[in-house]
Design a protein around this nucleic acid. Structure first.
Lengths: 341, 341
DNA sequence: GAATCGTCCCAAAGCGCTTTGGACACGCGG
DNA sequence: CCGCGTGTCCAAAGCGCTTTGGGACGATTC
């Protein structure tokens, strides 16, 4: 059932039917009601491509995921973010397009193609690094974009949404310092990622505020996996002057850290304290009857929802000033922290 | 730059340019070379929507993700599967469309809309349950589909790709039985999911083959999270006649199971053995210098790659016989298993 | 009563591509 | 010389929608 058939059946022109369906005022309310009823009855839905061709919009938003080597992007955080963004898209009639860049292919080429074929109306930039080259590429292409996180070093203004990673890690570290901890290990993500860099800054600032110098032996940075958390924490706990607390960049890592602690016969929250950054992933819940881990919480799904909204607004009005939002993580006290022994 | 402009610039008709670009034979090789060169130089790419409108194809494939309540679908397995499928799509010029169904909305309506708007050429069905109603809906809609897993109870033939879950869990259980274990706990996923049901069958068959009756107290089924693994294993280990081994449905669960074991001062692989089902997720590696967990391995990313191919073939030739593929999981011996104490 | 103004509707021209149905020139055999 | 393929190209008709630029008709105004 297409517009022509529907209008024929109604004895109206395509113009009128189209206008009735799209809520234009040049059509009487009685006619509109007739049209809507007929559309419903015949299960009519305008063809996406035809509508897009006519309007010049694709009503789709792209997410480009590089598979390069370590597949950084396909992580649990990504899944939850996508879910949040998808909710917003669905609510606004947008489609979500995922573009995987197979290993070895050029990510920039994907953005160019997306643009020149008119496949999407805008894109979300994931996992920004410092001085990320994607931003200027997208700016040059004239493809609307928003960034999940920030890209230190990019000159021009752009829209982004980020967690205040610096403050979150400063707060987490200070929380431990207030408990009397002086040797605090940092289990961080890869520091070429903008967020990880900021986290370390926050950690160091908190130490500095108490006149403590950071100890490189207490700072680890790698891809955030359970074995990494285990290995890094284990190594630190094996030192002559081991840490009495950890600040950990993710829930998954923290599972490894906890294993390292308990594996040494120590009790988490008693002998060794742990504060994590918790993205509130749907299948890695940290609540139930009181959170297990003391955490700086910030829902990445909510971030997805909100960032999608920002992009949709930007597409609707590309000349509006850029929107930047800094979310503050909430401290949730759990059973993984206590006074320094 | 569109086709009209390009053909004007070349002094050729749109017809000829289009044919040259699409490899039709009615165009001389010298002209074709000229056209290709000009297209490259002007960075011409045919507009997706216009092409789709003319051909009737969308060159897009849909993945529908229900958010209903527990958000079962947005799990780590899904992310890796998507990544694999995305690789295949990219290689064949297809786009991947993710449709999130916000809580409370009707999943069936999404499929209907996808169909009537012509948004996608086919869909992948995720997480089939027993007697899954989606299959007959898609069949009725005439929307090509393939299933990741199987849906016991659906009458008509359909294309699917699945891991041999029954045999994998039978093998895992038998492996433990051969070590002399007699009390073996099953930490399973929700059993309305087809795969979880099959896993239990495999587990029970292995026991039966040795004349052992399954003990309901040793069988848990829930959403596969770390806390669930911890709680379920902990409860079983606290019984008067505790299990000496576990078969666990996922890596994430297994982290909890290990914690429960080690938390009781027991050694995994020595006092208590564990065999897991490992989907070989990119960020939950179980290899490195020899796998930690003894596992039945089957790469879900590879499954995504392959299933996407099956769907693409199906779209190209809808009348071809249905393709069904049963992947066998490989046993990878790790350090989590040993003789019964 | 004529001029003006809304209201409600329509025909037709795009949007950028593919594809049908020729047109034209050329070479060939009869 | 005619007829007939054959190779190469083109004009134009879609694909299913939106949107422009009116048109008809009754109600209002002077």
């Amino acid at each position: 059932m297409n517009l022509k058939e529907l209008s024929l059946k109604l004895g109206l022109s395509q113009t009128t039917v189209s206008r009735a369906l799209n809520g234009y005022p040049e059509v009487s309310e009685t006619t509109r009601a007739r049209v809507l009823e007929a559309a419903r009855r015949h299960n009519y839905r305008p063809n996406t491509r035809a509508k897009g061709l006519a309007t010049g919009q694709s009503m789709a938003i792209g997410h480009v995921i590089p598979m390069s080597g370590n597949a950084e992007m396909v992580n649990p955080i990504f899944g939850d973010f996508i879910a949040g963004a998808g909710e917003t898209y669905a609510r606004h009639g947008y489609e979500m397009l995922l573009s995987v860049v197979p290993d070895g292919l050029d990510e920039a080429a994907v953005y160019r193609t997306l643009r020149s074929r008119g496949t999407v109306d805008g894109v979300v930039v994931h996992g920004p690094r410092r001085n990320d080259p994607r931003l200027s590429l997208l700016e040059d292409l004239g493809l609307p974009f928003v960034v999940h996180g920030r890209a230190t070093g990019y000159g021009r203004p752009y829209s982004w949404l980020d967690v205040n990673n610096r403050r979150a890690f400063q707060a987490a570290t200070t929380y431990l310092l207030d408990f009397g901890h002086r040797r605090i290990g940092l289990i961080n993500g890869r520091e070429h990622m903008d967020f990880a860099h900021r986290r370390r800054c926050g950690y160091e600032e908190a130490l500095a505020a108490r006149g403590l110098a950071p100890d490189v032996a207490l700072m680890a940075a790698d891809e955030m996996t359970e074995p990494y958390g285990f290995a890094a924490a284990g190594a630190m706990l094996g030192m002559p002057d081991p840490p009495t607390a950890f600040v950990v960049s993710s829930m998954i890592c923290a599972l490894g850290v906890r294993r390292a602690i308990e594996g040494r016969g120590l009790a988490m929250g008693l002998d060794v304290s742990v504060v994590i950054h918790d993205d509130a992933l749907s299948y890695l819940r940290n609540d139930g009857a009181g959170p297990v881990f003391t955490a700086m919480q910030s829902s990445v799904r909510e971030a997805g929802r909100r960032l999608a909204q920002i992009l949709i607004d930007r597409i609707a009005d590309p000349d509006a000033p850029h929107v930047t939002e800094l979310l503050e993580a909430r401290l949730a006290v759990g059973r993984s922290t206590g006074p320094a022994p």
